[in-house]
Nucleic acid binder design. Structure first.
Length: 582
RNA sequence: GCGCCCGUAGCUCAGUCGGAUAGAGCACCAGAUUCCUAAUCUGGGGGUCAGAGGUUCGAAUCCUCUCGGGCGCGCCA
């Protein structure tokens, strides 16, 4: 609806040669905003104030000239100049009625923009290591990423959702060794479990379930002979020695067989967990596949060609400081092993090479240290720094009964995402996770999220949706119908202030979706839906919809059906259900 | 020590590109239902936007510094 006003202002300016020069590099759309106060009309433009300096005229003088040049529009009832030079627009009822019609005509498509070809966006999120079940922190990244993906699609961008599976490297070896030791344990071979190993109960379950055919039993002595002591300072050495010992005793193939089954089992569980949570990925991109396809070598070759690698102390370095990083980074260690950073830049290089124009990474806040160097890697390979956008998601703290709950994957004492979902339900979980700005710490209060009461905003919004459905059921019970065509015809009867307020809020929806998408900020949509539900509940309490006069009844039903439609669309983007009944 | 994020009502948080009198929920107080679901609604009190400077027609918003909190700073992943 905003574009109506923006176009009027634009046209007026084009009729004012003395101003259009000053306005040349001003985005008119950006000067138009919703008013906070109804006494300022529906929209206001600060264009006159913005032009005051370049045009060297007073804001009010410019505003007067623009208003003069506006001309008549059926969408506008009144235009006023106010305050230091705001131009306030009062839109006509007809403009709002047309918007209501647009809502019901477009249905699920209302608020969505036409598909664009570019930029093609690769959205990477969650990407938790497949070493254990997802915990509540991952849930936030999952909800946030899924919702941002929905928002970007709603405004027309092609979005590819991707999960990067870190299925290579030392952590995988430790996982393999952990499973191996639990398998031995189940077969009566007891070996001191490493502190750095994964000790969650799920490791025993995997050990019991994997196929170990062809893997010969060994004795406890054969396993522990000559290993370093399992002490604090030896923790790394001890676990690495166990990995090496497993490979000695069972061969690379034997170790690989166990490790691979373990990671596949965990990865599948993560995938099921996310699917159940309504979080879908287009691709599960394996780090192993990156290595097998020699993509890390390809990326390093590109850097080499561009003179972006050097040798020092037997290692190969990338001069990240040239791109604003605080220190240069090693890509190939002295021992010939490529670093995690090497595969990371190779992965991002690969994303760009696959044809995605814009890369968005959603990472836990603890990974912010990587942002500069990965971006540096892309830049060094000839891409734009802006091609990579990183959104950090701050930590989640769970509270129960006012008590803060601790979590840690390694100790096995975590709270899993699955437990959380079972407790609060998908809807409340999805909603709570995106209620706050991503760069704000999140206090997740289980008592509130589980309460089926007015404390809980997700139910408040869903209830508004269910109430409309309930009204329509009542209508049927009373053997009345809803004549939508007549409703559209009679919208002029809706002259109550609460009706005007509801129509105004409804018309904001496309702007809110765009704002939330552009800022990767789902909380705008959350707050909007709360406002909308509030307007609806207030209206519901103040006025009956099922009245005797068919004209007024159909008009009101038209309005509340539009409300139901917008709530359903908004909740859909959040991944929250819109129930017909509660 | 250096870097990133944050600091807004008693609590949890919104606040768009700098815009008009800084908002919401919870909590607290007072009310509303013969009527479509009370999982609802109405009204009220509650603010040094951490602090100090600066930029300008205008700053919670931009810049600098200080204070406070979180996270990160490896030839780990």
């Amino acid at each position: 609806m905003k574009h109506i006003v923006a176009e009027l202002v634009q046209t007026a300016l084009s009729r004012l040669p003395e101003l259009s020069e000053a306005a040349a590099d001003l985005a008119i759309e950006g000067t138009v905003e919703r008013t906070r106060d109804a006494s300022h009309g529906d929209f206001a433009s600060n264009v006159a104030m913005r032009l005051a300096k370049p045009a060297r005229r007073s804001p009010r003088d410019i505003a007067a000239a623009i208003v003069e040049a506006l001309g008549d529009s059926p969408d506008v009832d009144k235009v006023e100049i106010a305050g230091p030079g705001f131009i306030n627009f009062y839109l006509s009822p007809a403009a709002f009625h047309a918007e209501l019609e647009a809502i019901l005509t477009a249905g699920e498509r209302y608020g969505r923009q036409a598909s664009k070809e570019h930029p093609r966006i690769l959205l990477e999120f969650v990407s938790a290591n497949p070493t254990g079940p997802l915990h509540v922190g991952h849930g936030r990244g999952a909800s946030y990423g899924a919702t941002v993906g929905n928002l970007l699609e709603a405004v027309g961008y092609p979005v590819h959702r991707e999960y990067y599976v870190n299925d290579a490297g030392r952590q995988m070896d430790i996982l393999g060794a952990s499973v191996w030791l639990r398998w031995l344990e189940a077969n009566g071979v007891d070996v001191d479990f490493p502190q750095g190993g994964y000790r969650g109960a799920y490791i025993r379950e995997i050990a019991a379930a994997i196929d170990t055919s062809g893997i010969e039993p060994v004795t406890a002595d054969a396993v522990s002979d000559g290993l370093p002591d399992n002490t604090d300072e030896n923790a790394d050495a001890y676990v690495d020695a166990l990995v090496a010992r497993c490979k000695e005793l069972h061969g690379e193939d034997g170790f690989d067989k166990m490790r691979q089954q373990a990671l596949e089992s965990i990865r599948d569980e993560i995938r099921d967990d996310l699917e159940d949570f309504g979080v879908h990925f287009d691709e599960w991109f394996s780090e192993q596949s990156l290595t097998k396809a020699k993509r890390v070598d390809d990326a390093l070759a590109v850097l080499e060609e561009r003179g972006m690698l050097y040798k020092k102390d037997g290692a190969t370095w990338f001069p990240a400081t040239q791109f604003g990083d605080e220190k240069d980074r090693v890509v190939v260690r002295e021992n010939g092993v490529k670093t995690y950073f090497a595969s990371d830049i190779a992965y991002h290089f690969d994303k760009r090479e696959r044809g995605y124009d814009h890369l968005i990474d959603i990472l836990g806040a603890d990974h912010h240290g990587y942002v500069t160097r990965v971006r540096a890697g892309l830049e060094a390979m000839g891409y734009e720094a802006d091609d990579l956008e990183v959104k950090l998601v701050q930590f989640v703290t769970l509270y129960r009964g006012g008590e803060r709950m601790q979590m840690s994957t390694r100790s096995g004492q975590f709270d899993t995402l699955r437990q959380l979902r079972n407790e609060v339900g998908n809807d409340a979980a999805r909603f709570y996770y995106v209620m706050r700005s991503n760069d704000q710490h999140l206090d997740f209060d289980l008592d509130i999220a589980t309460s089926q009461s007015n404390d809980n905003p997700v139910y408040y919004i869903q209830y508004a949706h269910a109430r409309v459905a309930s009204v329509l059921r009542q209508l049927e019970e009373k053997s009345l119908g809803f004549d939508a065509a007549n409703g559209r015809e009679q919208l002029g009867l809706l002259d109550e202030p609460l009706e005007k307020a509801l129509m105004t809020t409804l018309s904001r929806y496309p702007e809110v979706v765009e704002l939330a998408a552009n800022n990767r900020a789902p909380q705008h949509l959350v707050h909007y839906l709360r406002d909308l539900a509030n307007d609806f509940h207030t209206y519901y309490n103040a006025h009956a919809f099922i009245v005797d006069e068919a004209a007024l009844r159909d008009a009101r039903l038209y309005l509340i059906c539009a409300t139901r439609n917008v709530i359903a669309n908004g909740l859909g983007i959040l991944g929250v259900s819109a129930p017909e009944k509660m």
